[in-house]
């Protein structure tokens, strides 16, 4: 479901598929583990393969941000699809953590 790539101090989590209530739990556990190790500076979620995110999914992202904040780290979400981008913008999510669209 997720690919975790560690690159020096940067962790990139490639989500393979949608983030929905159904698979949120697994992702959460994974994230929690990574965060507990705390051997990184950047935490990037790559949503290249993600088309759908439901409310719980959004909740996950927010929670991840919250947890990262606790350890003084920042969240980056990249390669967000245009639809998702609209959603995030409407929610002013970018005021909290960095969202960027597809890199061309």
């Amino acid at each position: 479901m997720i690919n975790i790539i560690k690159n020096d101090k940067k962790i990139v989590v490639q989500v393979d598929g949608d983030i929905l209530a159904t698979n949120v739990e697994i992702i959460r556990v994974n994230f929690k583990n990574i965060l507990s190790e705390n051997n990184f500076d950047e935490f990037v979620i790559d949503l290249l393969k993600t088309t759908m995110v439901d409310s719980v999914g959004i909740g996950l992202l927010v929670a991840t941000h919250n947890s990262l904040e606790k350890i003084g780290k920042k969240l980056l979400v990249r390669n967000v699809s245009s639809e998702l981008l609209i959603l995030f913008k409407s929610m002013r999510i970018e005021q909290h953590f960095s969202i960027s669209g597809m890199e061309k």
Binding site: L35, V62, A63, H96
Partner: peptide, 18 residues
């Protein structure tokens, strides 16, 4: 026109979030 998400209410990965 504007929106606001109360992210703190969401909790963190630890809690029974969302």
């Amino acid at each position: 026109i504007d929106s606001y998400v109360d992210i703190s209410a969401v909790g963190s990965l630890d809690d029974d979030f969302a």
